[in-house]
Each structure stands twice: as C-alpha cells, then as structure tokens.
Computed example of a mutant assay.
Amino acid sequence: MTAIPVTIGRRMPVPAASGSLGAPAAPGAAPGAVGVGLPLVDSHGRVHRDLRISLTDRCSLRCTYCMPEQGNEWLAKSSILTVDEIVRVARVAAADGITTFRLTGGEPLLRTDIVEVVARLAGLTGPDGGGVEVAMTTNGIRLPQLLPGLIAAGLSRVNISLDTLDRDRFAALTRRDRLEDVLAGIAAAAASGLRPVKLNAVAMRGVNDDELVQLVQFAIDHDVQLRFIEQMPLDAGHTWDRDRMVTQHEILTTLATRWTLTEVPGRGGAPAARWLLDGGPHTVGVIASVTAPFCGDCDRLRLTADGQLRNCLFSTTEYDLLPTLRTPADPSVDAGIDRMLRACVKGKLPGHAINDPAFLQPARGMNAIGG
C-alpha cells in the first residue's frame, strides 16, 4: 500500500513502503507487517511514544478560541472512525512503541461508546508485553455520570479544561452557561483515585488574565494541578492575535506576586514546564508553545476523528488512513497502518515555525484536529 499525505486542498504522493519505511519485521510481528514492532523515530532522532486520538469534532461548548458558535461544518458520520478502526490503529502503534493514548475531541465524552473505547485501548500491550496508559482531555461536563465506568475500564489520567471561575465570564467565553457542570466534573475527578488530575487554562489578555492567581489557588484547594496554556493560532475563524496572548513570562511574573516559584527539572517530552509553589508539594505548569517551544523533545503524533494522521498540532499535511482501514478483507492492513505511521513520522519537521513570518495556520480548528 502507498502512504498518501494530504495537504489541505490537494494530495501529494509519497513513496510506497521501501527503504526506511520498509524495515524488516520485528520478531513476533504479524505476517507481512513491514516494520511493525520497530520504534517510531523521526529524522531528528525523536522517538514517538504518545498518540493523541480525537474521537469527535463535536463539543458541548463553543469556546471562542476554538470554534464559532454557529455555522460549524461537522465531519460526516460515515467518516468517523469506528471503535474497531481506532483499536486497529492503536494496536499497531502500541507494537511500534506508543505507550500513551490520549483521547480528545471536540469533547470525547460525547461518544456513546467511550467506555468501550477506553476498555479496548487499555487492554493493549507493547512489544515487550507491557501495558499502555489511556488518558483523556475533556471539558468535564459528563464526568460525574461516566467517570466510575471509565476508571473501571482502565482510564489512567484526566485533564479538564477550565479557563475561568466566573459564571458570566464562562458563559461569554464558552457561549454556554455550564460552569457548574464543569465544576461538578472537576469535583468528581478530584474525589476519584485518578492522579494527577490536571486543569488546563488558556490565558487570554483582557479575558481571564486577572484570574491567574485565583485559578491556581482553586487547583491547590482541590488537590489538582493547574497548567496555563499560551493561546495558539488554532481557532477555526483564524482570528488569533499575538497581542492578546498572555506569555509564559507574564504568567510567572503574576504568580510570583503570591508564591515563590522553583522550576522542576527533568521535563523530558512533557508539554508543560512546571514550577513548585513555595517549595511544594503543589505545582503549576505552563505550556508555552509560542514563546518557549518544546518541539525538540516532542514525542507525539495525532489521529483525527476522520482517520487522518498528523505529526504536529500545526501541520498543514495529513496522512489519510481511511483507505487503508476500509479495504475489505485485506490481510496487509496492519502493514499499511505501520507504513503510514512511519511516513507520518518521517515527514515531521524540526518545529512548528509559529514564529516564522511564513507560518500558515492549519485549515482545521482545534476541535477538528484534537486537543
């Protein structure tokens, strides 16, 4: 099978499995699985261990930095990956060394089969027989009802989005009056055995930059971790304005008026740099994709809800897995998935180039790419 990357608006052919994409099969690999079982290493030496899987582009909120309130063009239901298709891709990825699967959206808890997805992913093993970790990023609205079943199915960690503690501000920012539901989801996660529970807050000038200390104190009071995120050019309306972005430096300067901050060493491939608050044990994180990119340690790939592989959140190229997954009765599907994973990894650039004058924002919004 031929790996076909799709640049939004046009298609470009990529060589079929040969050379670096056609490494010998590892011991125990499925028959005909070219390269299955070998690590996913890009041309810059980065070993990939994390696959973000978007389950849907739909969401119960309409955050201004993510998607418009109306006029959204949703993915066709027929193009959304089934549970079997998701698991098939994940099984090959696990054999190739992926150890963490993070479920995203849109809002992943809108999938009626979400517990089954978690259970089947949690049952996968890597090439050494070790288990995998299944995490989730959610707005938390449906967590009180679903969390017990998700934990029983094997969910390991959860991140919940919370940009403000003010009800009117939340309604204006998300275009939905659902703050109490989100807070109930956070309370449910905090009361569960999942640790760490993380809260994600996008810092925005003139919107919530006066709440930074309050948000951190809320996290401390609920024994969860807060991570601030620099606002990125990923809104569907392409209205991102660098001047409205609150930088990592500004965030830390504000927090330093309340706590003594000590940077935690050994970040590795984690997207957030962390700081101890007054010596610990509580920490705060900052994901500074714009002002302090961490591309050199990135170990992540992404799978969209409609079966497109992406090697960067900001990539303008996608690798279409649907033809491979939906070839009837083809015994070489696993080999085709493996080749596509390797083509995607091979095409990964050194960085996202947000700060390059020639940077182009992805055509898809965050909800369609996956958080």
Rank of each mutant, 00 (worst) to 15 (best):
231 Q>A: 14
175 R>Q: 01
105 G>R: 11
309 L>T: 09
338 D>G: 13
82 T>L: 07
180 E>V: 00
204 M>S: 15
320 D>N: 10
153 A>P: 00
99 T>A: 04
181 D>M: 07
237 G>E: 01
259 W>A: 03
96 D>R: 05
182 V>G: 02
115 V>A: 15
154 G>M: 06
360 L>D: 03
95 A>G: 07
276 L>P: 00
313 L>H: 12
97 G>R: 08
211 E>N: 13
283 T>R: 04
303 L>S: 06
204 M>T: 07
240 W>P: 05
120 R>V: 14
24 P>S: 15
125 T>V: 10
129 G>W: 15
35 G>W: 02
64 T>W: 02
167 R>G: 05
333 V>N: 01
73 E>H: 13
94 A>E: 01
82 T>W: 03
305 A>E: 03
185 G>K: 03
105 G>A: 03
294 F>M: 05
113 D>A: 00
33 A>E: 09
126 G>P: 08
303 L>W: 00
7 T>P: 03
270 A>Y: 12
257 T>W: 06
238 H>N: 10
320 D>M: 06
184 A>P: 00
110 L>G: 00
195 R>E: 10
326 R>F: 15
265 P>R: 11
83 V>T: 01
131 G>N: 04
114 I>L: 14
161 S>D: 13
18 S>H: 06
51 L>H: 11
57 D>H: 15
101 F>V: 08
153 A>C: 08
352 H>E: 09
94 A>L: 10
251 I>Y: 05
344 C>Y: 04
73 E>G: 15
346 K>V: 09
138 T>A: 06
267 R>N: 04
6 V>H: 00
348 K>H: 11
267 R>D: 13
356 D>L: 11
143 L>S: 08
48 H>S: 06
163 D>S: 09
330 D>S: 12
133 E>H: 14
314 F>L: 14
205 R>D: 15
38 L>P: 08
105 G>N: 15
47 V>G: 13
188 A>I: 12
189 A>M: 11
72 N>A: 08
210 D>E: 15
203 A>V: 02
5 P>H: 05
7 T>M: 11
64 T>C: 14
130 G>Q: 10
247 T>Q: 03
222 H>A: 07
97 G>Q: 07
343 A>S: 12
207 V>K: 10
200 N>A: 13
186 I>F: 05
213 V>Y: 02
148 P>V: 15
224 V>Y: 09
80 I>A: 04
56 T>S: 01
187 A>G: 08
